[in-house]
Each structure stands twice: as structure tokens, then as C-alpha cells.
Nucleic acid binder design. Structure first.
Length: 295
DNA sequence: CATGCCCCCTGCACGC
DNA sequence: TGCGTGCAGGGGGCAT
């Protein structure tokens, strides 16, 4: 799944075809994804103009002229495909060129914009979701109320991490995976950030604070590690695992830059380190790290 | 409140 | 070729 860099990449890909455009028709092909689709979903979308396409954590937020916000999450396998209209040919829903290689059986939702551009949401595992929430209620909605800081914003500081980590018994991996602490990190980028910071994923989270609650040098290292790995990934257009593609059909390249993720048994890339990347399981999910240079 | 585990679902790689 | 197993980028819900 798309973690923050992939969602941001998708947002940037969709923005030019969605923002400022009216949804002419909307097609919903099944009753639900992770949650049931909203009541009267198509009615509430059709003829609305998408004012802006934003992102919070791993959620895409399409602000509509009606005052509602279309909230979209890609889960593990969600993706969008943009299809341009055939030249000189009326573009009808269901009559579009499918160009991603994805199984059309999992095309659950189709947006047709006023200019004939089609945006299709495909999600084999259906862990994604779409919700309509009024703009006023967005911040108080259960999905958003508890979210932690945006890692690329100004609020992620060593002080913040130390405050949140103080007294925590969970390990660093679980702490950073917790969306209530830092919103948008996932399995890949937590592993990569901990590598960049030289911190073991098994270390207790409270090691980010000292006895007085002030940040330790570990917290000081972790902040730039998180920021840089996310920014580098965004700059590379996200990571492409299996058949994930960007909204415009091109493929992100950050997976070629992974230092530890998916590299079990391979040599650590830290200059001079003779360690081997190992895979362990934490909270039921794979963690990759070098036990030699990540302490 | 914090923590850990299960589950939702499909596709794919692997070993036999 | 077929089949069983384990694994996959998330996160809600529940028991403890």
C-alpha cells in the first residue's frame, strides 16, 4: 500500500485532471469496499466540482463545491487510472481504454469528468475506502480526530517525538507505525527511516526521551531520517511494488533505493558496515534492519 | 489509556 | 497441472 509518498504521488497525478473540474457522471459498481459506500453516493458526486485535491496522512481529500469532502484511502492495493477521451469520439462510461494491466473485475468506481477524462479506482483486496464528510465535520471525524502530525510538516520535531514516546513500552517500530503519532508512515518507510537514523526497530520507544522528557540524540536523528526518506521517495515518484503504478501510468522508482526493505540476507549498504540485513516479525509484519549499524 | 492480536480480501510466489 | 501455504504497502475492532 501506498504509504505517504505513494499517496502524495497519486495526488499529484490526479490533481491536474480532477481539481477545478466537474464530475459529469459517477459509476459505483459494488456496494462497498472496506466500508459501505456513502448513501446516494453518485447523486452527491455528480455535477459537483472538485475544488481541490489534498492529502492528510494516507487519505486523499477531494473538496467538493457542495461543501462535502470526498475522502479516499487506497488500502493495500488501491490505485487510480486516468484515461483520456478518444479523439472525436463521445466518451461513455464503460467504453474506455483500460491501460494498466489491472483486472477490470476490480474496477469498483469510475469518475467521468466534464471534459471526458475518466478516472477509475481499482482495488483487488478492497481494503480501501471512500467516504463523504461535510467539510466542517472533517477534523472531528473518528478517522481524522486522532491522527498524529504530518511528517513533512513543521510539527514533527524531536520534542514532539520525545513527548509522545515518554513512558511508552512498545518498540520503536510499533511506535512509528502508529498513525496517532506520525501520520503517513507505513511498513516500508518506518524500516527505511530507522535504518537512516541508525536505530534498532526493537528498541523501546521511550528511548527517544530522557528521564526529564527531553529528546535524546536518537530523537534528534530520527526526525531528519523520517523527513529525508519520505522526501526522497516523493522525489522519485514513490515506490512501485508488484504492479502498483502512479496515476499517470508511469512507475515510481524509489524501490530501487531501499536500503533494508525486502533485502533480507543482503549486505548492509552502510559504508564499512559488514552487517547483513535481517528480517524479523513485529506485530505480525516484517521488519528489515541491520543489527550491526542499527542500535 | 496502551498494547497485542485477529480480521477483512485477493493475488502471487513457492514447494511438493 | 494442481494444490496448500505463507506473504503482501493498512487499519478497525476487540480483549487484556
Amino acid at each position: 500500500m501506498p504509504e505517504l509518498p505513494e499517496v502524495e504521488t497519486v495526488r499529484r497525478g490526479l490533481e491536474p485532471v480532477l481539481a477545478g473540474r466537474r464530475i459529469a457522471r459517477f459509476e459505483q459498481r459494488r456496494p462497498d469496499l472496506r466500508f459501505p459506500f456513502p448513501e446516494r453516493f453518485a447523486e452527491r458526486l455528480e455535477n459537483q466540482t472538485i475544488l481541490t485535491l489534498g492529502r492528510r496522512a494516507k487519505y486523499l481529500l477531494a473538496r467538493l463545491s457542495s461543501g462535502e469532502v470526498l475522502v479516499m484511502h487506497l488500502g493495500m492495493s488501491g490505485r487510480f487510472t486516468i484515461t483520456l477521451p478518444h479523439q472525436g469520439k463521445p466518451q461513455l462510461l464503460g467504453d474506455y481504454t483500460y491501460d494498466t494491466g489491472a483486472d477490470p473485475a476490480h474496477d469498483h468506481v469510475v469518475f467521468m469528468m466534464e471534459d471526458g477524462v475518466t478516472v477509475t479506482y481499482n482495488d483487488p483486496r478492497r481494503f480501501g475506502c471512500m467516504l463523504l464528510i461535510s467539510e466542517q465535520e472533517l477534523d472531528e471525524h473518528p478517522l481524522f480526530a486522532g491522527l498524529g502530525v504530518e511528517p513533512l510538516g513543521n510539527e514533527l520535531t524531536p520534542d514532539y517525538l520525545a513527548t509522545k514516546a515518554r513512558g511508552r513500552k512498545a518498540d520503536l517500530k510499533a511506535f512509528l507505525m502508529d498513525q496517532r503519532i506520525v501520520a503517513g508512515l507505513g511498513n516500508i518507510y518506518v524500516c527505511e527511516a530507522l535504518y537512516r537514523a541508525g536505530l534498532s526497530p526493537k528498541r523501546v520507544a521511550s528511548c527517544l526521551a530522557n528521564g526529564s522528557g527531553w529528546p535524546t540524540s536518537r530523537a534528534e536523528r530520527l526526525v531528519p531520517a523520517i523527513r529525508s526518506v519520505l522526501q526522497d521517495a516523493i522525489d522519485a515518484g514513490g515506490s512501485t511494488l508488484r504492479d502498483y503504478r502512479q496515476a499517470d501510468g508511469t512507475i515510481g522508482g524509489f524501490q530501487h533505493t531501499f536500503s533494508v526493505y525486502g533485502r533480507e540476507g543482503e549486505p548492509c549498504l552502510t559504508p564499512g558496515c559488514r552487517g547483513i540485513v535481517q528480517r524479523i516479525v513485529q506485530g505480525g509484519r516484517s521488519t528489515f534492519y541491520c543489527g550491526k549499524c542499527q542500535r
